[in-house]
Design a protein around this nucleic acid. Structure first.
Lengths: 211, 211
DNA sequence: TGGCAATGTAGACACTGACAACTTGATCTG
DNA sequence: CAGATCAAGTTGTCAGTGTCTACATTGCCA
């Protein structure tokens, strides 16, 4: 029985505008190319005056900041969902890799927003624990693999950075349509991941390739 | 004896405006954060009317496109300068890696612009031969290394994609200030590259670490 | 009951990208 | 050498944007 039920005449106060602004912005990120959506368009879609969103976000940059943090939450959730403790570390890493790629491919503009740290903020976003969660996940799996003897013994932090960079780069290239088959082959992603795992996994246990 | 010499009163026609627009835009990319410079600011700096640049670029996106292509030219030049045919493939790759990183670090916003393919164009930029040149360089070195027996035998295309992704990701993370030591260790870049080379280089010849 | 703080509205300002119409001047042709 | 032509630069204009200020509405608490 919320007040939003009598849709005949909308009440003066929206009641849940902050959430609606965020949801609308996320929708527009999915639709549009680039995150050059406008606050006024968001207000229009929410049937609210053009400056109402400013009651909830001091400026556009802070909305972008919030969206990026939500993106990291979602990425962490999707990586968590891909975890299966019964599997060994190498397969585990592969599942994480494909989950990461899938997330980026499904939310290209949100993904770009998360990592660009543009939008005016001095990229202090990367110090937020919410952005660190996915990284810590990878470190855990690597350390477990080193204890199991399936992962090459090196600084897990360095290996995690390597995974992070590799996956991030691959995702960006995929998002930007840079992995066109004529240039990079038909199995670019699998091949690139194979080289990453060549550097991580001990022994000849090649990661299973997707078909 | 150009007409630009009598600076007392500037002539009606600038004479070299296209180049000046590009150079000014490149300057602003270096100064500012983000490529949200304005065409009008460029015109102001060039002491030219606000719509003069439109005689040389149909819109802002096409200027960004041109800037990105110039960026790829410069990246190719810097990678070429790092090449030394007397060296073996592994060291060679390491030199390319550091050159790539240096380029991105020195021109962060230009680098981001090159890869974002945002700005409205449908990312057809990646089909331009000018953007392919750096990629082909890496393939050459990898194929040579495979013939020499210093590089693991795999699809060179896939390995090149792996290098490309790894380097791109690492550069982006570095540019975005994501590799803060508290999170990722003091030797994040060296460590991450070590894992890449673990996956590429045959035998125990570890790449020389920078100190 | 009254007032206050949160939330929404209306209006304004400077700025931007883009377009149209006009001006200038070099260059080419008869 | 006169004059057309056309690239290149100018002013003016328009819709749209982010952001600020002043005002309106309303739920809630003393």
């Amino acid at each position: 029985m919320t007040s939003a039920e009598c849709a005949e005449q909308k009440p003066y106060h929206h009641g849940d505008l902050r959430r609606v602004v965020i949801d609308t912005a996320l929708d527009m990120l999915q639709e549009q190319k680039g995150w050059q959506f406008t606050l006024r368009e968001i207000a229009r879609r929410a049937s609210v005056s053009h400056s109402a969103p400013y009651r909830h976000f001091p400026d556009k940059a802070s909305l972008l900041h919030e969206l990026a943090l939500i993106g990291f939450d979602r990425l962490r959730d999707e990586l968590l969902a891909a975890l299966d403790p019964t599997l060994g570390a190498p397969i585990h890493l592969q599942a994480l890799a494909y989950a990461h790629l899938a997330f980026g491919t499904r939310n290209p503009d949100l993904y770009r927003l998360m990592f660009n740290a543009d939008a005016g903020e001095p990229s202090d976003i990367h110090l937020d624990p919410r952005t660190q969660a996915p990284f810590l996940l990878v470190i855990d799996v690597l350390e477990r693999g080193q204890r199991e003897g399936t992962i090459r013994r090196r600084s897990a932090l360095g290996q995690a950075t390597a995974c992070w960079a590799h996956l991030h780069g691959l995702t960006m290239l995929a998002i930007d349509g840079r992995l066109v088959p004529e240039k990079v082959g038909d199995h670019a992603i699998e091949d690139a991941l194979a080289t990453l795992f060549d550097g991580l996994v001990l022994g000849e246990s090649q990661p299973i390739s997707r078909n």
